[in-house]
Design a binder for these strands. Structure first.
Length: 403
RNA sequence: GUGACCGUAGCUCAGUUUGGUUAGAGCGCCGGGUUGUGGUCCCGGAGGUCGCGGGUUCGAAGCCCGUCGGUCACCCCA
């Protein structure tokens, strides 16, 4: 094969695609139950949507974006995440008040691929805009938890933290910086650079973090407002029965987060990338994008990683496979199958006139519940239950009663 | 961007140590045994530029050089 899918992209094929279908359906169901409307934004945006929103000194913007100029000379980028687009959309639509929207679709980041990290990957997300209520934070965290539990992600753990806001973050960052300067000698090269540009990320560094066990954490410096907010979020999660683990050193990769930060980790996943989702509050983002202040909180789940973590077993694919016992019946089979389909059955057949044995093999392989056999007698068909082996001849008109 | 490992049938791999005739297995696929019946068993069949290019050699899947691709990890993040 000379033609391949680009590096870091995957074809989602059967049988895994069946799992994707179920995960996407479950996502629609859960977000509808929670009152989130569907939003579909473009897969590409002006580069500034991300460079201003996500933060210029961020790795994501520095080197992970797929950017290009179109024929009109516009500087565009394939979206590396969903939140900035949604907030841009809120502002562009001139929306006011509360917006609850859910999205789903591919995101793009130019990185070296590895297990759970692809150049094109799929996210499920919601954004709850227009309120700074801690109830919104709690609802969003709960939604993610309910969904991931429903689709049976093994070893699921919810991590929650607060990283402060414009009022208290500066004091914390000063404290952290001076702490880091004292310990500069033990820091890796990357962390030394980030010490000035993005010091909270140092806490995330796998090499340095163990050496910095007594570093100040954001929750030590929260202002009263943030403290109250965080306490309320945790109280609501307790009341909802959402088990979570406080994670004082959890910081988010994107600059726009304020206050609540959270992450869903699949602890059973035997790969370096075991975060299946994350999110947080981003009260300053709308202003950063040049709009009016709009508070918001959101979450994003990595569908590829959820699948990797082993969510959901596969079920039967077909209700009925219609087989032909004689070559004369081949021309009738599509007609029967079509009728069944119009009545709502998942039905299929073999178009190539293969042996009955071969048709049964196909039915078994495709996990069909039932097989209907068309024989010499036009007025009766044989209906066979594939799991019990039970089989009977029934009048053609009554087939559906036996499915 | 850095590092390690790996490219032989659709898939998983053996064969490379000691170069030697027509390159093998399992699974999958197609057909048959069972002249109208699957998941077991048996038989047969289709399917391969040994990633690509060059070099060494009487002879290369194997040795040497280069190149492309993949995987995992770092980094970063969903």
């Amino acid at each position: 094969m000379t033609l391949r899918a680009p590096k870091g992209t995957d074809d989602i094929l059967p049988p895994i695609s069946a799992t994707w279908r179920r995960l996407l359906r479950a996502w629609s169901a859960w977000t509808e139950r929670y009152g989130y409307d569907l939003i579909i934004t473009p897969l590409f945006e002006a580069v500034e949507v991300f460079s201003r929103g996500v933060g210029e000194f961020n790795e994501l913007v520095e080197k992970q974006m797929y950017t290009f100029n179109d024929k009109g000379g516009r500087a565009l980028a394939l979206r590396p995440e969903g939140t900035a687009s949604v907030v841009r959309s809120y502002l562009q639509a001139g929306a006011a008040g509360v917006w609850k929207v859910a999205y789903e679709g591919p995101m793009f980041r130019y990185e070296r691929p590895q297990a759970g990290r692809r150049r094109q990957f799929h996210q499920l997300g919601v954004e709850y805009l227009g309120t700074d209520s801690p109830l919104a934070d709690a609802e969003v965290i709960e939604l993610g938890y309910r969904y991931l539990t429903d689709v049976k992600v093994p070893g699921l753990v919810v991590l929650v933290n607060s990283i402060g806001d414009r009022a208290c973050r500066p004091a914390y960052l000063d404290a952290l910086r001076s702490y880091l300067r004292e310990h500069e000698a033990v820091l890796c090269e990357d962390s030394r650079r980030r010490m000035e540009t993005n010091p909270m990320r140092v806490l995330d560094c796998k090499v340095c973090a163990p050496k910095l066990h007594d570093a100040p954490v954001p929750t030590d410096y929260l202002c009263d407002e943030c403290e109250r907010h965080f306490t309320s979020v945790k109280e609501q999660l307790d009341r909802l029965g959402v088990p979570y683990r406080p994670a004082p050193r959890l910081v988010r990769g994107l600059d726009y987060y304020t206050r609540t930060a959270f992450e869903y980790v699949a602890t059973d996943l035997d790969a370096a990338q075991n975060a299946v989702g994350g999110g947080g509050r981003y009260d300053g983002l709308a202003e950063t994008l040049g709009g009016k202040p709009v508070p918001g909180v959101g979450l994003a789940l990595g569908l590829d990683r959820i699948v990797l973590a082993g969510a959901e077993p596969d079920g039967p694919e077909l209700d009925v496979f219609v087989a032909t016992a004689t070559t004369e019946r081949v021309r009738d089979v599509l007609t029967i199958v079509s009728q069944l389909r119009q009545e709502g059955w998942r039905a299929d057949f073999d178009p190539d006139g293969r042996s009955l044995k071969s048709q049964f093999k196909q039915a078994a392989r495709r996990n069909s519940r039932m097989v209907v056999i068309l024989g010499d007698d036009l007025d009766t068909v044989t209906v066979r239950n594939m799991s019990t082996g039970e089989q009977r001849d029934v009048p053609t008109g009554e087939v559906t009663q036996w499915l």
